[in-house]
């Protein structure tokens, strides 16, 4: 994801001189390093100083530029939180705040590096759009949209590197603010976003194995939420499953259940989120998801599947 973001940004940056990137002492992936060499003045490294990273992007946007702030998710969003809220969101400036390693991607680095509530927190701020692509090709589409838009600030939440392409067979194009069908199915619909999408695919296989046809939908835009598209899904399917890499409070799961209540639907909803807890253990990304109770076998059991 990181590399596809960098490639796309480089290509767009060559064409649009307003695009800049401000990082806080993070080594820029692949093509961003190329961007830095070719356009050294449009690449700023503030050092280990995230508040000025966000503050500067606000000022640059106020004077007509299109800056992207870029570092590890916890340090783009949490560390300079009030700068994001007041400088970017209150003033509604078209700045893209890129968080790499969203969710618990940085598994061995511990809770200081786990952006386990990033989507919930970002979604709570007025004016901030929240986009969480599930694979490199969604990253590319989202990056293009971020660079072209000037409606306001965006939190663009990425994984790290090496994510598989999951949306190759998608039935819909990527459109900001619209849910996107990645796979067709009749009996169950699985909603997910971000790198944990790989587990949505694993669950779909388990459903198929027990004779149920499962659709998968990428809810890549968490804010504004596609309430219409989601309401249609809740009306169409007898069973909806949400799986996401976010703490429960303020999660997609919570909002889907709220929508179900608002629209009087009675389908079965199973929601699987991260725990509302700091996990004091380590290992791979998969190990941490398992520790949060999101192991595929555990979920299969909770869903009553074989």
């Amino acid at each position: 994801m990181r590399n596809r973001f960098a490639d796309t940004f480089y290509e767009l940056g060559k064409a649009d001189p307003r695009l800049c990137v401000v990082v806080a002492d993070i080594s820029p992936a692949g093509s961003i390093a190329k961007f830095r060499n070719e356009f050294p003045r449009r690449f700023v490294n503030t050092g280990v100083s995230e508040q000025i990273m966000i503050g500067m992007t606000a000022g640059m946007a106020q004077r007509g530029l299109k800056p992207f702030a870029y570092t590890i998710a916890t340090f783009t969003l949490y560390r300079p939180f009030e700068m994001v809220r007041d400088d970017l969101c209150y003033q509604n400036l078209p700045v893209t705040v890129v968080g790499i390693g969203g969710g618990v991607t940085y598994s061995t680095l511990g809770a200081t590096h786990h952006a386990q509530e990033d989507v919930a927190i970002a979604s709570a701020i007025p004016n901030l759009s929240v986009v969480a692509p599930c694979d490199p090709s969604e990253v590319e589409a989202a990056t293009r949209w971020c660079a072209a838009q000037d409606q306001g600030p965006v939190y663009l939440r990425l994984g790290k590197a090496g994510e598989p392409d999951l949306s190759k067979a998608a039935l819909d194009p990527w459109v900001f603010g619209k849910v996107r069908r990645l796979r067709e199915g009749r009996d169950v619909c699985i909603l997910s976003y971000g790198p944990i999408m790989k587990r949505a695919f694993a669950l779909a296989e388990r459903f198929e194995a027990s004779g149920k046809s499962a659709a998968i939908v990428s809810v890549h835009t968490l804010k504004p939420l596609d309430r219409e598209g989601l309401a249609r899904i809740l009306q169409t399917y007898a069973h909806v499953v949400v799986i996401e890499e976010c703490a429960p409070n303020g999660s997609l799961a919570m909002r889907v259940k709220e929508l179900a209540w608002d629209t009087d639907v009675t389908c079965r909803i199973d929601a699987f989120t991260l725990k509302d807890a700091f996990i004091h253990c380590y290992g791979s990304h998969d190990d941490i998801l398992d520790a949060h109770g999101l192991g595929v076998s555990e979920l299969t059991a909770r869903l009553g599947l074989q």
Binding site: V48, R79, L109, G110, A111, H113, C281, G283, D287
Partner: peptide
């Protein structure tokens, strides 16, 4: 170290003996 059943990660954690504070965010 850094394994699923271990208690030591790449950053110090306050619960661990000898560790005075959880750090990692600079």
């Amino acid at each position: 170290y850094c394994k699923p059943n271990g208690r030591l990660g790449a950053h110090p954690d306050y619960e661990t003996p000898g560790i005075a504070a959880s750090t990692g965010s600079l």
